[in-house]
Simulated scan of single mutants.
Amino acid sequence: MTTASRATTVAIAAGAVAAVVGSAPVAAGSAASFCDELQATWDGQRCTTMVVSARKAERYIAFDLPEPQLNASVTGPVLREFYHRLMAGWRDSGAQAARDSSAIAYFDSFSGPGAVQSLVVHECLEPFGMQANNAYRTFVFDMDKGHRLSLADLFKPGIDPMAVISAAAAPVLPAALDAAAPPHAPNTYPFTVEEFQPGPGRPGYTGNYRAFALSPEDLILYLPDAPMLRENPRPADRLVWSMDGGAVVARVPLAALSASLRPEYGGS
């Protein structure tokens, strides 16, 4: 396959995924300037570059950039550091790749409750001819207080977030699990509530709820946050499944958590 045809194939694939994963439109300006910092090219919509490995494998890298958040004093430094690290990591692994690939970062954003701003970055790394690997990196900020929020920051003192979230998520998980790919019979392993909740000594496929965002109505969980090669600890009595990042997206109503949340984050 020629360089031109490979680039065309990647561009078509990128456009198809972008139609599925929403992201706010980005205007030229500071996004283009930041793209220069990343030593890439702003094409009017995305920050792109191509890396060629010693084995002549090409990696197309493309970032959708959340320009307003990149410019804000609270969110900008954290997000700019993240995108620098992501670009460096994808360049380094691309320089050692044995096959052509694409590495694309999309984003989605949410405002609320109150002064909360959430950004969700969807990383999609796809070696051509193989299954894509997805990961979700989330950034939640309190714009009034001027800092990034951890999961524990959302809850009142003395509350165990793992326990409270797992209880509130139990009613909404079955529908989210049934909708997950690949198609499967409802309530069959590993797409069961038990596997997607933390238990004694095991996180299951939750990723310890590392990937979370807030909307005005929900706590949004991306389960797990990144690909898992196997469960940990490894089950001795059944097949071991790998699980892609964001295989299950669960929306837990803030109303179900209100007694445990701080008032500024949807609590009562």
Rank of each mutant, 00 (worst) to 15 (best):
T75L: 12
Y222M: 04
P77Q: 14
A28H: 10
K56S: 11
S258P: 00
W42G: 01
L125T: 11
P233W: 01
T49D: 04
A176W: 03
S93C: 10
F191K: 07
R91T: 08
E58Q: 13
G201V: 09
P68Q: 02
S23G: 14
P68C: 00
V17H: 06
F82R: 05
S268R: 15
G158Q: 04
S268D: 15
F128V: 12
L254N: 00
R80C: 03
A24K: 14
I12A: 08
A24V: 07
E81K: 15
I12V: 14
F141G: 04
M162W: 12
E126C: 10
L119C: 02
G129A: 13
D100V: 00
A62T: 02
V249E: 13
L219K: 10
A72D: 15
W90D: 01
R148M: 13
S109D: 14
A167L: 08
F34G: 03
P113C: 07
G199C: 05
E231F: 08
D218I: 02
A19L: 12
N232Q: 14
E195D: 12
A152P: 00
R85V: 08
A28W: 09
L229I: 14
Y189V: 12
P216N: 15
A181M: 11
P233G: 04
P233M: 03
P253W: 09
V249C: 01
G22V: 12
D218P: 07
A62Y: 02
V116G: 00
R55G: 03
R137Q: 11
R85T: 12
A175W: 01
A28K: 08
R46T: 01
L239M: 13
E126N: 09
E195T: 10
G129R: 03
N71E: 15
A54I: 03
P161E: 05
E67T: 11
F191G: 08
V20T: 15
L239I: 11
T9F: 02
R251Y: 07
E37K: 13
T206A: 04
D160V: 14
A7P: 00
A181Y: 14
Q197E: 14
A31Q: 05
A255R: 11
P157E: 12
R262Y: 11
T8Q: 13
D142S: 02
Y205E: 02
T49I: 08
V26H: 07
A103E: 01
L154R: 10
T188S: 09
G29C: 03
P203E: 14
Y136R: 05
A152N: 09
T3A: 15
V248C: 05
P68M: 02
V116Y: 02
A256E: 01
A175R: 09
A256C: 01
A213Q: 08
L223K: 06
T75Q: 15
K145W: 11
R137V: 10
L173C: 06
M87Y: 01
Y265F: 13
S268Y: 04
R85S: 06
T9K: 05
H122M: 03
